[in-house]
């Protein structure tokens, strides 16, 4: 197990490397001088010269690339051009909000999606199943920032049940603030996880051991949950990992809709302000989370299905 994980960990190094190179390339590919992009067209030549010197823009592209890689690997993201705060501090301040939102959305998504999927599978081709199909069709088509905006307009603006912006202070206030954004993100999870559990359950319910369980006189709920759903867990565990990642990418837009702090928000604000060190830092954080979640998925996979370890 430990050896398997170690190999997997080594495997993720090229991924990080590739993302870093893509980011570097994209930022240097930009037409025009980054110094002018940051300082503006009317910046004085002396200021530009100082800027270029400070950020090593006078070096050759290779030297810049090596320096960039070294800085990123040692988590030295520099300081924000706007607030002069170290980028690591900004990220540390914002990341709890994103994690909190992701967890809340996942809890709603799992506790809504899996029972719904089971319900649809058990009532295959009847009203609940058709209703769920329609729901998931709409759930996949509605962009989450649009759903968020509708919830914001209806429940915060018109009904005044929930706060319009921010993340709140103290447990209850934070809980109050997180309801709408978490629901927004959860909708797609419910559609996705529901459909996944529906198909994987249907696949399993036709197997011999399910028929045996029924023949032995096991009650239907026991057949469904003990013999059916447990064996449908493997595809579901992959779906969960995927779900965490889509929640994370969705959180960027949702944080903007609800004006919440978070890493996505930090990244988007930095893009608007052309705050390059913060952009780099934000991108690296997201890429690392993706690699980490994928690694965790592998662990869960091995735990759920020991056969994989042998391969």
């Amino acid at each position: 197990m430990a050896r398997y994980l170690f190999v997997r960990l080594l495997d993720s190094i090229p991924t990080i490397f590739l993302v870093l190179s893509l980011v570097f390339l994209a930022m240097r590919i930009l037409p025009g001088d980054p110094a002018i992009a940051v300082l503006g067209e009317n910046a004085r030549p002396e200021t530009i010269a100082i800027f270029r010197e400070k950020f090593g823009l006078n070096e050759s592209l290779w030297v810049q690339y090596i320096t960039f890689l070294r800085d990123m690997i040692t988590f030295d993201f520099g300081t924000s051009l706007m607030s002069n705060t170290p980028v690591t501090t900004l990220i540390a301040e914002n990341i709890p909000y994103t994690i909190e939102l992701t967890i809340a959305a996942m809890i709603i998504g799992i506790s809504g999606g899996i029972p719904l999927g089971v319900w649809a599978a058990v009532n295959r081709n009847k009203a609940p199943d058709n209703g769920f199909r329609l729901f998931s069709l709409v759930g996949y088509a509605v962009p989450d920032f649009y759903l968020g905006a509708i919830l914001l307009i209806v429940f915060a603006l018109n009904l005044g049940w929930f706060p319009i912006t921010g993340a709140g202070d103290g447990f209850l206030d934070r809980l109050h603030h997180i309801v709408l954004p978490a629901l927004t993100l959860a909708m797609l999870k419910i559609a996705f996880l529901g459909r996944l559990s529906r198909t994987s359950l249907l696949e399993v319910m036709g197997r011999d051991y399910v028929r045996t369980a029924r023949a032995k006189g096991a009650r239907e709920p026991r057949v469904i949950y003990r013999h059916g759903l447990r064996n449908a867990l493997l595809p579901l565990s992959t779906g969960l990992g995927l779900s965490v990642l889509t929640t994370l990418s969705g959180s960027v837009a949702v944080e903007l809709v609800f004006n919440r702090p978070g890493v996505g928000r930090l990244l988007i604000d930095a893009i608007t302000e052309r705050d390059y060190p913060v952009i780099q830092g934000g991108v690296i954080v997201f890429a690392s989370i993706v690699v980490l979640v994928n690694l965790m998925m592998e662990v869960v996979y091995v735990l759920v299905d020991p056969r994989i370890r042998v391969k």
Binding site: V19, L22, V23, A26, M27, I29, L30, L245, L248, S249, V252, L267, A270, I271, I279, G282, V283, F286, A287, V290
Partner: peptide, 10 residues
């Protein structure tokens, strides 16, 4: 996420 990350830089 891939699109956001590349667009962020580009």
């Amino acid at each position: 996420l891939l699109a956001i990350l590349i667009a962020a830089a580009l």
